[in-house]
Design a protein around this nucleic acid. Structure first.
Length: 112
DNA sequence: GTTTTGACAGTAT
DNA sequence: AATACTGCCAAAA
């Protein structure tokens, strides 16, 4: 059987890929659905490392604060913000997204 | 093979 | 209520 760790990565990728347009999910949300409530970090690096290479919508995944983690000076940050805005995500003056409105809600109840 | 880093979250003080 | 420390997973050096 495959290593669970690999499954975790795959689970994260699958979940991120299932995030509907106009919605954003937090690392904790994904991590929990992936089966690792404490693996929020794991979600982050996967999206940046593998996710980017896989062409995943890592842009829809942000931290629990509703903000993009890396500094606004980074190019990826600008790209992500631009993409989210293009999908209908509203950013606050400080670059914060209202998770209460755009927070992905696992609509189909797809239990992990 | 071991050590350090990394796009966070949760709990404790 | 706010701040700090710890915990977790996986990958790269």
């Amino acid at each position: 059987m495959e290593n669970q760790a690999t499954l975790f990565t795959r689970a994260v990728v699958s979940l991120v890929r299932r995030i509907p347009k106009g919605k954003v999910a937090t690392y904790g949300q994904i991590a929990r659905l992936a089966g690792n409530p404490r693996g929020a970090r794991g979600v982050g690096w996967i999206l940046h490392s593998k996710g980017r290479a896989k062409g995943l919508p890592w842009q829809r995944v942000i931290n629990r604060l509703g903000q993009i983690s890396f500094p606004p000076d980074t190019r990826d940050h600008a790209i992500q913000r631009r993409r989210l805005e293009a999908e209908g995500i509203a950013f606050d003056r400080t670059g914060t997204v209202d998770l209460k409105k755009f927070g992905w809600k696992k609509t189909a109840k797809e239990k992990a």
